[in-house]
Design a protein around this nucleic acid. Structure first.
Lengths: 211, 211
DNA sequence: TGATTGACTGACCGCTCGTTCAGCGGGCTG
DNA sequence: CAGCCCGCTGAACGAGCGGTCAGTCAATCA
């Protein structure tokens, strides 16, 4: 059955409100983003938002889910198919860099949600709904690392710790790139991370050249 | 000149209000921490806070400066003296782990401030006052990395990027430790990071054992 | 084309917050 | 011991928030 006209309008409204929410939260931060400003940004009245979302909390939550769904889709696509661990790692990092540079604004929403805020019931709700999303990302990478360890490509280390370290470290670089006027090409930063992680930064004593 | 009785009382008040602020912000998050609750936590009336701090903004700012001063003192102490790069890195990470496990509560304040929030003038002010503090930490580590590169101990890579990657990655592990009931000994996580960073995680093809 | 609808609006309400200030009371002075 | 002083208090205030709902009007129907 084709979508009725009303459904199309409804989807359009939901989408533009969510996009407006991302932009305003990115600009002002989670706490200072008001319903009034989100409504203005979306080009609707404040009351209209309440026709599509029960309250502010549901708006933020649904918006976050929609956006992070896109991110996970990209990252999963990057991990699909065959390849060595190094290749997969490289394409994962590249996908992440590309996503965040295409969706600069989502980035700050993503991180505003990391540090839970608000009153106790909000905190509980956010913990329930958002933390699994972050955890899923870490777990997926940890699984990939574990497979590489089993295959003998990688030393045996705590995969979860390593995944956490890698994800947060690379996100810090993404954030730095976003504030730079002319960041180096993505491949350069990807290569820095991949080579550091795989081979380390130390120069073995035997190979050091006197200077 | 010895401190007068009034000065001692004043310092005590300032200190207990700042400690209360850290505890409440840690518990509730930056936005939901109210002056009322900070006052109750400090055991004074709400109005008393305004005798020692101009407004909420100044309280948060001064509190943050006091606490991060302590952190930087610890980290600098860890880097003082002679030693190889590996040794310094190890003591730096250990100092950081110890500080954050001793000051669990400060941790969330530290990160609440990372992602700038609030209205435009608050954002500008926070950028001016807090970002240099973070930048100073990254720069200090970057300087250490640069020295190690010049000494031929470490490959030539962008020291700032590497410092950023390392600091944020290790902070992610600190955060994970804080949420764990029985985290592994600090030395274990420190060793994971040090060995990964120095030697990488890859097993060279020549050394792989068939399984 | 007049009647009907319901998506949309924005003034409004209740509430919480940061901030203020009149007054309280414990301690010091003469 | 009277009286002043001043650090401290917490009720009161106004700004600004999320959420509501009576009213509006373009699109649709009969």
């Amino acid at each position: 059955m084709a979508k009725s006209k009303e459904e199309i309008v409804q989807e359009f409204r939901v989408q533009s409100i969510q996009e407006a929410a991302i932009r305003v939260i990115s600009r002002k931060g989670m706490a200072a983003a008001t319903m009034q400003e989100i409504a203005e940004e979306a080009g609707v009245a404040k009351g209209t938002i309440y026709l599509y979302f029960r309250d502010r909390e549901e708006l933020v939550e649904k918006t976050f889910e929609t956006a992070i769904g896109q991110l996970h889709g990209r990252l999963d696509a990057a991990l699909d198919g065959e390849g060595t661990f190094a290749e997969k790692l490289r394409s994962l990092l590249t996908a992440q860099f590309v996503f965040f540079s295409e969706n600069r604004e989502f980035f700050r929403l993503y991180h505003s949600l990391r540090m839970t805020q608000g009153n106790a019931s909000q905190q509980r709700r956010q913990k329930r709904n958002c933390q699994p999303q972050f955890k899923a990302r870490v777990d997926r990478l940890a699984g990939m690392l574990k497979a590489a360890m089993d295959a003998g490509e990688v030393r045996a280390l705590d995969p979860s710790r390593l995944a956490l370290f890698l994800i947060e470290g690379s996100i810090a670089i993404v954030l730095e790139r976003l504030t730079e006027d002319a960041p180096p090409p993505e491949s350069e930063d990807v290569e820095l991370i991949v080579s550091t992680l795989l081979g380390g930064i130390a120069i073995p004593k035997s190979k050091r050249s006197s200077h």
